[in-house]
């Protein structure tokens, strides 16, 4: 399955890069080279535009991680989730997922090492990490790209979505494993 997924992503992009211009040129008579350059022009400006947004959010997250404040968050939430039967070992990496993908993956690896990837906790962590996203990064990049500062209810809705992903992961793991 993994090989399939990997080779699929190796094939799809090159095929798109050949297929789209080929169709455009042969069928629609598009000046493909000029068209490509025209679109590509924006690339750098967008990169520069998202910089302040990324710095703002990554600095806050970096400070938060380095300070060990995560322990407090875990300490506050822990009683609630233990009451529901959710293994507390899986909590820190799940909470970290919305903030930093690489940190969450590192914490998951640690859990795999300690509890084993085929333990209930290992499977639960796998499902959680696969079904949640680095919400803060996505928001910074996408809203930064269009310089929208007021994101209204996006963060609230995204965090509710993240929590629902964790809950759904827990429920399905209880049913499956």
């Amino acid at each position: 399955m993994r090989e399939l997924a990997n080779s699929a992503s190796n094939w799809i992009v090159p095929l798109l890069i050949l297929g789209i211009p080929l169709y455009a040129y042969a069928v629609k008579r598009v000046r493909v080279y000029e068209s490509f350059i025209e679109g590509a022009k924006e690339g750098f400006t967008i990169g520069v535009r998202i910089m302040p947004y990324l710095v703002a959010i990554l600095v806050a997250i970096g400070m938060f991680r380095a300070s060990g404040a995560m322990d407090w968050l875990v300490w506050v939430i822990r009683p609630v989730v233990s009451w529901a039967g959710f293994p507390p070992e899986a909590l820190p990496s799940s909470l970290m997922r919305s903030l930093s993908g690489s940190a969450a993956f590192a914490m998951s690896s640690e859990i795999f090492k300690v509890n084993g990837p085929d333990s209930f906790i290992g499977r639960l962590v796998s499902v959680i990490q696969g079904s949640t996203e680095t919400t803060f990064y996505v928001m910074a990049v996408y809203f930064g790209a269009v310089a929208v500062r007021k994101t209204r209810y996006t963060l609230a809705a995204s965090l509710i979505t993240d929590v629902s992903g964790i809950v759904a992961a827990y429920v399905i793991c209880r049913l499956l494993f």
């Binding site: 789209i20 629609k28 590509a40 690339g43």
Partner: peptide
């Protein structure tokens, strides 16, 4: 973005 523009023009 370049590829996207080609797709758009087509």
């Amino acid at each position: 973005l370049g590829l996207m523009r080609v797709a758009d023009d087509a």
